[in-house]
Computed example of a mutant assay.
Amino acid sequence: MTIAPARYATVDTPPGPFTVLVTAGPDGKDVVLASGWTDDVTELLPVVHRSLRPTWVERADDDLPVLAAVAAFWAGDVTAIDGVPVRQRSGPFLTDAWDALRTVPAGAPDTYASFAQRCGRPTAVRAAAGACAKNAAALFVPCHRVLSTGGGLGGFRWGTPVKRWLLDHEASHASVPA
């Protein structure tokens, strides 16, 4: 099954241009298929599961509603992205892991080992890291909030400078209990 059409928009953000690809959900509201720090939507299409990949994309003539959450995030409301609907598809572990990523609080990143525990599979550290790497909806499914077990940044599809910026931004705006 293919979803058609999808719309996209690109906005400027402090770490660089950010593109969001959306489609209509069952309720007619936008659902994020993919997003990332690029101004080229064709970089996002390959990470969308083939069963969800749109048959065509068009630039949104007006602002996408999801961009309000993106703007609020940059303005300091780091929880503004939490309720944005996302659609990704894969096997049960990845689907559960992407849901678990949305429970990692802003300002309190996990390590890959603790993220594997959060996923209910404490020995699946490599699989947890793979779930982060395969995440198509960067920012909304905050894979940037998972660090190497030794405390280093680890990888990030959009580059470690973007990951570092996001973590610093969230740390300076999050209200995480001590």
Results as ranks from 00 to 15, higher is better:
Thr23Asp: 13
Thr23Cys: 14
Ala24Ser: 12
Ala24Cys: 06
Ala24Trp: 02
Ala24Arg: 14
Gly25Asp: 07
Gly25Leu: 00
Gly25Arg: 08
Pro26Lys: 10
Pro26Asn: 15
Pro26His: 11
Asp27Glu: 07
Gly28Cys: 07
Gly28Ala: 02
Gly28Thr: 08
Gly28Val: 13
Lys29Ser: 13
Asp30Glu: 12
Val31Tyr: 03
Val32Asn: 05
Val32Lys: 14
Val32Thr: 03
Val32Gln: 07
Leu33Val: 07
Leu33Ile: 09
Leu33Trp: 06
Leu33Asn: 09
Ala34Arg: 05
Ala34Thr: 03
Ala34Gln: 04
Ala34Cys: 00
Ser35Arg: 10
Ser35Gln: 10
Ser35Ala: 13
Ser35Asn: 05
Ser35Gly: 03
Ser35Thr: 08
Gly36Gln: 09
Gly36Thr: 12
Thr38Ile: 12
Asp40Leu: 02
Asp40Ser: 10
Asp40Gly: 00
Val41Arg: 09
Val41Thr: 05
Val41Gln: 02
Val41Trp: 07
Glu43Ala: 14
Glu43Lys: 11
Leu44Val: 00
Leu45Arg: 10
Pro46Asp: 00
Pro46Lys: 04
Val47Asp: 08
Val48Ile: 08
His49Gly: 05
Arg50His: 01
Arg50Lys: 14
Arg50Gln: 06
Ser51Cys: 09
Leu52Asn: 15
Arg53Asn: 10
Pro54Trp: 07
Thr55Phe: 14
Thr55Trp: 11
Thr55Cys: 05
Trp56Asp: 15
Trp56Gln: 14
Trp56Leu: 10
Trp56Glu: 15
Glu58Gly: 13
Glu58Ser: 13
Glu58Phe: 04
Glu58Ala: 14
Glu58Val: 13
Arg59Thr: 12
Arg59Ile: 01
Ala60Tyr: 06
Ala60Met: 07
Ala60Thr: 06
Asp61Gln: 12
Asp61Arg: 15
Asp62Phe: 03
Asp62His: 10
Asp62Lys: 13
Asp63Cys: 09
Asp63Arg: 14
Asp63Pro: 09
Asp63Ser: 09
Pro65Phe: 08
Val66Ile: 10
Val66Glu: 11
Leu67His: 08
Leu67Phe: 06
Leu67Glu: 07
Ala69Leu: 04
Val70Ser: 02
Ala71Leu: 11
Ala72His: 02
Ala72Trp: 09
Phe73Ile: 01
Phe73Gly: 07
Trp74His: 05
Ala75Asp: 10
Ala75Thr: 11
Ala75Tyr: 00
Gly76Tyr: 07
Gly76Leu: 08
Gly76Ile: 00
Gly76Thr: 01
Val78Gln: 11
Val78Asp: 03
Val78His: 00
Val78Met: 02
Thr79Ala: 15
Thr79Pro: 03
Ala80Val: 08
Ile81Cys: 11
Asp82Trp: 02
Asp82Leu: 01
Asp82Lys: 14
Asp82Phe: 02
Gly83Lys: 04
Val84Pro: 03
Val84Ala: 00
Val84Glu: 04
Pro85Phe: 09
Pro85Arg: 02
Val86Glu: 11
Val86Pro: 14
Gln88Pro: 03
Gln88Val: 14
Gln88Asn: 10
Arg89Ala: 15
Arg89Thr: 15
Arg89Gly: 01
